[in-house]
Amino acid sequence: MFGRDLKKGSAELLVLSVIEARPRHGYEIGKLIESRSRGRIAFRIGSLYPILRRLEDRGLIRGRWVEKPGEHRRRFYRLTPEGRGFLAEQRSLWEQFVATINQVVSVRRV
């Protein structure tokens, strides 16, 4: 739906947002982004997974293997304190960015 570049720039913010409330496993993160965007943003495992790894490398999220009865084990990611701070900062930056873009882009209507 959206181009690759747009998606790339916002991927981290998207991932961090969906695990803000509670830890989620990798596939769930992808599905959640897809459902919350009503299918307009979809990440395939092959694209999402490296982003998770990188976020973890930078200490913004932390993964832990969890095994539930009757299911295979999955790795659940949660935000670290740094991750929360980073998310808050990025979210406000994003909102300012969107508002600014809108100011420019919306001129057409006038």
């Binding site: 496993h25 596939y27 997974y49």
Partner: peptide
Amino acid sequence: EITEEIARQLEDAYEE
């Protein structure tokens, strides 16, 4: 670890 995690995610996708 990487191999297993990607495999589990693919499995999730398969089951879905």
